[in-house]
Simulated assay, not measured.
Amino acid sequence: MPARYCQDSPDAIASCVLEDMVLLYHRPSGQTHMAIAPVPEILATLDDGAALTAGELLGQLAQLYDLGEPEEALPLVEAHLAELAALGLVRIA
């Protein structure tokens, strides 16, 4: 069964856009992270509280963005989710 990812709470992360980069302040840890696409887009998709698999997340992102072939994009989305989970910005539900 694939892992499902979600954010802890809608107010756990504050963001500030600086040109092509986004600063993400994670309130629970007190850490600030610098991110570029597609990380802000992934977090925005998970922002509604839904717990999504990497495939479901990719499907939602593909409706808004040209991500190329799904078989090539899915491993990248999975890698981003793993990194975000390691940083505490998302969690496995």
Rank of each mutant, 00 (worst) to 15 (best):
P28I: 10
A62F: 02
L52E: 03
Y25S: 10
E19N: 13
L57K: 03
L81G: 01
A62G: 01
L24N: 10
V22E: 11
S9P: 00
S29N: 11
A51W: 01
D47V: 00
S29V: 02
E19Q: 13
V90A: 11
G59T: 02
L18K: 11
V77E: 03
A86D: 15
A54K: 01
L43C: 05
S15E: 14
P40L: 07
M34A: 15
C6H: 14
V90P: 00
L74A: 02
V90H: 07
C6G: 10
A35Q: 05
V90D: 06
R4F: 03
Y25M: 07
A62N: 02
E69T: 06
G49K: 01
Y65N: 05
V39I: 15
A85D: 13
L87V: 06
L58D: 01
E71P: 00
L24R: 08
Y65L: 13
T53G: 07
L81W: 10
A73C: 07
L61F: 09
A54H: 04
D47I: 00
P10V: 12
E56R: 10
V39H: 03
I36L: 11
T45C: 15
L67E: 02
A14S: 14
T45G: 01
A35R: 00
G88V: 11
R27P: 00
D66Q: 12
E72S: 12
P40N: 10
D8P: 00
I92R: 15
A93M: 05
M1N: 12
E71R: 13
L84N: 09
H26R: 04
A35D: 06
C16S: 13
L81K: 06
G55R: 11
A93T: 08
A14V: 13
G68P: 05
L74I: 00
P10Y: 12
L58W: 06
I92Y: 01
Q7S: 03
E19H: 12
R4M: 08
E69R: 14
S15R: 14
L81P: 01
G49H: 05
